[in-house]
Amino acid sequence: MSSVLDDVPHHERVAHTNGLPPIGLWWPMLERPLRREVLENVHAPLRAVVVRRIYELCELDPGHAPQLGVRLGENERAYIAGWMHSVDWN
């Protein structure tokens, strides 16, 4: 099972209330320094540079990215918690 859908039109990728594409598309590709920044406080608003990078990773126009007050939703925080749990297995 995959969290990434094939051939999803770009305009349908941004469907969440916070304006971000589905986290399964961008979180695996997000660079470590930006990931660490998000992990420091998953409830804090994301910096504009992080949001722009998310849009770039999803091949969306970063000029249309929301600028201020973008926060991860409950489902996105749950995704990250599951991801952290899975990478902690040794």
Rank of each mutant, 00 (worst) to 15 (best):
W27V: 13
C58Q: 05
V8D: 12
Y55K: 05
N41C: 10
L57R: 02
L25S: 10
A78W: 05
L72C: 01
C58P: 07
Q67I: 09
V8L: 15
L68C: 13
L39I: 07
L46Y: 01
V87F: 03
D61C: 04
R53P: 04
G73I: 05
R32E: 11
R71M: 10
W27N: 07
L60K: 02
P22W: 07
R52F: 04
H43I: 15
D88F: 08
D61A: 05
P45E: 03
D61W: 02
R47V: 03
H11L: 10
I23R: 01
L20V: 06
A78T: 09
L25Y: 14
Y55V: 02
W27P: 08
L72R: 00
R77V: 05
L5M: 13
W83T: 06
G19W: 04
V42L: 12
L39C: 08
C58W: 04
L34C: 03
W26S: 09
D61P: 02
P22R: 07
H85Y: 13
W83Q: 05
S86P: 02
M1Y: 11
R71Q: 12
R32Y: 05
V70P: 03
N75H: 13
V51A: 00
H64A: 15
Q67G: 12
W89G: 09
G82R: 02
L72K: 00
Y55M: 06
P21I: 06
S2V: 12
N75L: 10
A15M: 10
G63R: 06
N90F: 12
V50Q: 00
G73C: 08
V38W: 00
A48Y: 08
C58K: 03
E59V: 12
L60D: 04
H10F: 11
Y79A: 02
N90D: 13
L72G: 00
H11P: 11
A44Q: 07
R52C: 08
P21D: 04
V50G: 00
E37G: 05
E31Q: 09
L25Q: 12
E59W: 09
R53I: 06
A15N: 14
E74D: 10
M1Q: 10
D7G: 14
L72W: 00
P21M: 02
G63T: 11
D7F: 15
V14D: 11
L60V: 07
L25K: 08
P45I: 02
H43C: 14
G24S: 06
T17S: 15
V4L: 14
R53C: 09
Y55T: 03
D88G: 12
E31I: 06
I23A: 01
R52T: 06
R35M: 10
N90A: 10
R47I: 04
Y55L: 05
P33C: 04
H16C: 13
W26A: 09
L20H: 08
G24H: 04
G82W: 01
A48H: 10
P21G: 04
H43S: 15
D61Q: 05
T17C: 13
M29S: 15
E40S: 14
V51N: 01
W89P: 06
P45T: 03
V42A: 09
H64D: 15
S3F: 15
L68I: 11
D7I: 14
W26K: 09
E37H: 05
L72S: 00
I80E: 01
Y79F: 07
L39V: 07
V8E: 13
A48C: 14
R52I: 05
N18E: 11
E56R: 10
G24E: 06
H16F: 14
V50W: 00
W26N: 09
T17N: 14
V70R: 02
P33V: 02
S2E: 12
A48G: 13
Y79I: 02
